[in-house]
Nucleic acid binder design. Sequence first.
DNA 1: GTCTATATGTTGATAGAC
DNA 2: GTCTATCAACATATAGAC
Lengths: 209, 209
Amino acid sequence: MATTISQTRVSQRRQATIEELLDHAQAILDEEGAGAVTVSEVARRIGMRPPSVYKYFDSLHAIYDGLFARGQTRIVQAIEYAVRDREPGLASLLAGHRAFVEWSTRELGLASLMFWRPVPGFVPSPESMAAAQALSALGREELRVAVERGELAPAADSDEAARLLTVLVSGVFSQQASNQPGADFDAGLFTSLTDEVLAMFVRHYRPTP
Amino acid sequence: MATTISQTRVSQRRQATIEELLDHAQAILDEEGAGAVTVSEVARRIGMRPPSVYKYFDSLHAIYDGLFARGQTRIVQAIEYAVRDREPGLASLLAGHRAFVEWSTRELGLASLMFWRPVPGFVPSPESMAAAQALSALGREELRVAVERGELAPAADSDEAARLLTVLVSGVFSQQASNQPGADFDAGLFTSLTDEVLAMFVRHYRPTP
DNA sequence: GTCTATATGTTGATAGAC
DNA sequence: GTCTATCAACATATAGAC
């Protein structure tokens, strides 16, 4: 029994170290881009020797995967928070996608790792991808509800419409990130188009009265 | 005089070698991503020793810049070709932006270098960026003409509308490139939305009769 | 212009002492 | 879990012979 408690403590400590390593990896990602994240640099920042890092991550790719998973978790949280007291359907759909752009603008490093492919050869693990799919399923479900409630035309209850929405929000993110990376959501030349872009989508799928 | 002719021949040969080196660099970019382009690998492929490459490019960054400039030149050519026998205004605007997506989908390597920022520390030179600005000026001008011809509402003659268009096409490109990189334009889950997205834009700026 | 040779630095990853 | 030591590989870049 004492062993179990002790193991729990150890594993909590271990998890905390993992998160701290990811904090440093994310800082590098933000400051110098994905290509600058290396085992050595992460070790340097946390004050370990490189071999020690391998006790926590099997490889450099595992660190990327940890960052990818962290991004997925966080953006889902951001969206859930934004949607928390909205009606299901169109209101949630718009609030959620707006939150998507807001979060991505704030977390440029993680977002670029998730929505671009800046690291040659890095493919997220199936576990990390599962969260990504859950996210898109969420948007898909809100489309269904919005149509059910008569807020959007029937054609909006489709995978195509869902893809169209991701095109819009990732387009805003991409242009903002590559042309004016410093700006925040309200001041950004492209992020400030978010509501207009979403309005375009709504008009495109306006229900016939 | 003989000297001048000889120098011209030499400089032509030199330019040909530069293009050949860029061909190999682009092949690496396409096959393994931007991070895999190195002076050594380019040298290996063309059959030179690495130091010889420095006679043609001052640094690795200069090779990236050459690729960036090549991409700008080629996409402008692709767009001009697509627009060659269209009426100025809306028809050209749509054909041009469609060509933008088609070219980017075909040239994933160059496009990702131009529209994402995959190389830490690499910033295109002012000369290379000039071509990029010329490209956006071209789209801006077509918007002006389209409004002049009454094909779009006056609000479309604005920098905001121009940015909105870039958001749309770069969104299509980004989603296609990161989620289904192999597919070609017609089969792509996202590129096949190009016309629909452009139709959304036209509807958004439909002139009042 | 191309080469050999070299300086100098980096990386990812492993073996094994403590 | 952390370290030292080390590997093998690779990189950018320069000096100088031919």
